[in-house]
Each structure stands twice: as C-alpha cells, then as structure tokens.
Design a protein around this nucleic acid. Structure first.
Lengths: 177, 177
DNA sequence: GTCTATATACAGATAGAC
DNA sequence: GTCTATCTGTATATAGAC
C-alpha cells in the first residue's frame, strides 16, 4: 500500500518526464490518483514545492542507485553500461530525464529548483568522473562531461525516435564493445 | 519594419527556447508585441499551428544556415566548429534548442509537430554525416549521432550552468584542437 | 488527511464590429 | 488585419467542514 504523498510524486514524476513540468496540472494528478486537488495542496503547498520535491527525490534515488552500481560491478566499464541500460528503460517508457526536462524548461522554474537541478547534474558528473579515474583515464573530467552530455542528448533523440539503441550507439567511444 | 506574423514567431521562438512551449501563452505574446490575443489567432488559429510553424521555420533557417556554412568553410572541421559557435550563442541568450525543447515535451505536442521535430533532427544528422564523410571518416553515421547527441546534451548543461565552453569541451573528440 | 466549496486568475479560442 | 467582447474551460490556491 503506497501512501498518497508517494503516489503524487510518482505520477508527477512520470508526467514531468513525458509532458514537461508545465505540461500537467494538479487536476491531472488528482484524477490520476483518485483524490481532489486540495489534497495535493496539503502535501505540496505550491507547484514549485512539488518541483523541488521531485528533483530532491530523484537526486537521492540516483545517488543510492549509483552506490549500488559501484557495489554490484567491479569495473568502471560495467558500471557505465549499467547506467546506459538504466536510461534505455526511460525510452521504453517514452520518458526523458526528469532533471533534463527541468533544465530545458529552466526559465520557467524558480531559482530554488534551478539550483537543485544544478546540484543533481554536478553530483552525476562527479560520479562519472570517479568511474573514469577508476579506469585509469587521464582526462576523467572531460570524459565525464562528454558522457553525460551524450547521455542526455541521445536519450532525447532516442525517445524521439522510439529507439533505445541510440544511447549505446552515441556513447560507443566511452565503453568497450 | 517587421510584420506582425514574424514578430509573433520571433517572440514565440524565444519563449519556447527559454520557458518551453507550455511555459507561455498567447497573452505573453500579445503583451510582448503590443497587440491583442485575437490578432495572434488570426495568424495561427491554434497554438498547435504556431508550434508547427515554429519548427518548420527553424528547420528551413537551419537548412539555409548549413548550406552557408558549407559555402563559407572548406573543411569539415571548420564547419563543425561553426555549428558549435552558433549554438554557443544560445547559451549567452539562455536558450535551449527549439526542437530539442519540443522533443523534451514530446508527449504534450501533437503527432503532427512530433513528426516535424523528427524531420528536423533527421536532416541535421544527415548534414553532420556528410561532413564526417567529407573528412574521410569511415563511421560517419555514428559520429554524426555522437556529435548531435553531445551537442544537445552539452547545450542543455552549458545553459544550466551559464558556461558556453561546455559545448566545445564536451565535443572535443569530434574536432581538432 | 480528505473533502466541499470557492476565489481569482488565466488558458485557448471565437464572433463580429471597424 | 486588428480590435472589443465574450465564451468556456482550466489553473493554482485557500477556507473551513468533516
């Protein structure tokens, strides 16, 4: 049994990833869950509060996920491939990256949310850098940026064309084949 | 003297690139130009018509721009650098790629507009492929995808952090330094 | 914690005068 | 081609009952 707050976050996350944060309303959330909009305001006073909660939650979830990937895979190569596989699932669900979406709609989110999005990508890039360092690469920082950029862009293009293989294809130079 | 239709498209393009296509309304356009919303409906009966016109116009403009780059630069390397310089200007204006934005908000645009966005990226990638072929690369198709993905992703991240140099940094492997 | 009811504002869109 | 006026629906948000 999932509590209401989690149901709201789950649906809001999905809608943000598919239609954008400005592409849905509290009515969509309420109807989708089977509650009233006023109940959503009980948990998230404003839509900006909801945006902040979404970014913070996925930041935490991915931080845990990255730790699990480090525990589950010995090589940096295997970890990067696990990251790719994870985002390939987004394409099956026709979703874009939550923070990528917020970054795209940047001028329509509050400065507070913009900072949270920056923090998400900063930590993501730092984790990637550590993997490239672990693999003995000299230019780990640049490789991390190249991988992250290529991941976001190929996720955007792969989803547009309904093809999950676009991601590993675009990132081929960063992994062993 | 710019005509009204062009003014509408210019402002709508700018707003789409900064706030997303769902991040502005006909009122924003009307107030920004100094006309009434009903005048906008005269040129674009529905907002979806406006979306389609925006994608078609930038597709045409970029097609011309790519032709001009081929005429103005002999080497593929110089042309790719010109593309990078062009999108670096977006970051100065705090803008994302128009079609990248529509691709992000994919599930909130009509199938018609989605097809136009696909066509834009198809032609962009084809042009890039031709440059890599011109440079004698064997895997031109994959390089084109990698470049395009890295461009979209680094534009997203560079704008988020207000740093235009993120683009050439992320795409370093595709150009001579 | 969830509801009803409501406030206020705005959305996209249209009819018809000028 | 641009306007006034208006329609209908929706947006975010709040007050207060249960």
């Amino acid at each position: 049994m999932t509590d209401t707050k989690t149901k709201i976050l789950d649906l809001a996350e999905s809608l943000t990833q598919t239609k954008g944060f400005n592409g849905f309303s509290y009515i969509d959330l309420a109807n989708g869950i089977g509650i009233k909009t006023s109940s959503i305001h009980y948990y998230f006073k404003t839509k900006d509060d909801l945006a902040a909660a979404l970014v913070e939650r996925i930041h935490e979830n991915h931080t845990e996920g990255f730790q699990a990937m480090e525990a589950g895979h010995d090589s940096a190569d295997a970890r990067l491939k696990a990251v790719i596989a994870y985002f390939q699932n987004y394409i099956a669900d026709q979703k874009f990256c939550l923070c990528g979406m917020m970054a795209a709609e940047l001028q329509s989110v509050s400065p507070r949310v913009a900072k949270l999005v920056q923090a998400y990508f900063r930590d993501f890039q730092t984790w990637l850098k550590r993997q490239f360092e672990h693999a003995g690469k000299e230019d780990a920082d640049r490789l991390a940026l190249g991988f992250l950029s290529g991941l976001e862009g190929s996720l955007l293009l792969g989803r547009l064309n309904g093809d999950p293989d676009v991601i590993p294809h675009a990132l081929q130079d960063y992994i062993t084949t």
